[in-house]
Design a protein around this nucleic acid. Structure first.
Length: 219
DNA sequence: GCGACAG
DNA sequence: ATCTTGTCGC
């Protein structure tokens, strides 16, 4: 699936929000992908007071979770961090990093929200839609939605509700650690998103994909 | 006007 | 996200 999208990333806030509203109906919110042999983690680090972004992507073979490819690029940051508009700040560098890979991964675990977004187009959803790659949003903290504290066991979860809609879930990826906020991205539904996040969380709270990308982006 | 707010 | 040492706990 070649990306049928092509739009600027340095937009004024109001225009960026309007664009999200226009892209929103293009997002595929149900499972629509085949065999997964590779899962990639994405993350960013910043330099020079946030003016330069370091985008890292690490591809792990599934189910071994062994790293088989990775990419790291440094790019000027197009926008400041504005809650709800994170994708405009981070996607440009991520696209260049993804282009450096030997071949595109089968699934993306992004560091941020997916569908659990004010206009249902968080970083994971936007990046998946733009690249056509199935994606999942994995955030360490909540952007939107109300939720009850999930049970203490690994795998316990509770729905994230916004405007009367279940947009994601607070998922306990390890016993007695604060939950992760998981949401579907492009071509991946919530229940499937949670399954994949758990598949990638072996010893720590964060998925091995995210950990690997974070280490690469940090040095 | 006030509070919330991924990374 | 980033600036940063020590420190509490398994």
């Amino acid at each position: 699936m070649a990306p049928p999208l092509n739009h600027p990333w340095n937009l004024p806030p109001a225009e960026a929000r309007a664009l999200q509203e226009r892209l929103r109906p293009l997002l595929i919110t149900h499972d629509a992908f085949g065999q997964v042999q590779s899962v990639a983690g994405t993350d960013l680090g910043f330099e020079d007071d946030g003016r330069v972004a370091r985008a890292a992507v690490v591809v792990l073979e599934f189910p071994s979770l062994r790293a088989i490819d990775q990419a790291l690029v440094r790019r000027p940051t197009p926008m400041p961090y504005i809650p709800g508009l994170l994708s405009f700040r981070e996607i440009p560098a991520l696209l260049d990093a993804l282009a450096c890979l030997r071949r595109p991964p089968d699934l993306l675990l992004c560091d941020g929200a997916g569908y659990a977004h004010p206009r249902r187009l968080g970083l994971a959803a936007h990046l998946g839609l733009y690249t056509g790659i199935p994606s999942i949003g994995v955030a360490k903290s909540r952007l939107i939605g109300a939720y009850e504290e999930p049970g203490e066991a690994r795998g316990a979860w509770s729905p994230l509700v916004d405007q009367g809609e279940i947009v994601g879930a607070a998922l306990r990826t390890r016993a007695r650690v604060s939950p992760l906020f998981v949401s579907g991205g492009h071509r991946v539904g919530l229940m499937t998103a949670m399954r994949w996040v758990l598949h990638c969380c072996t010893r720590y709270r964060l998925p091995e994909t995210t950990r690997a990308a974070h280490r690469l982006a940090s040095g």
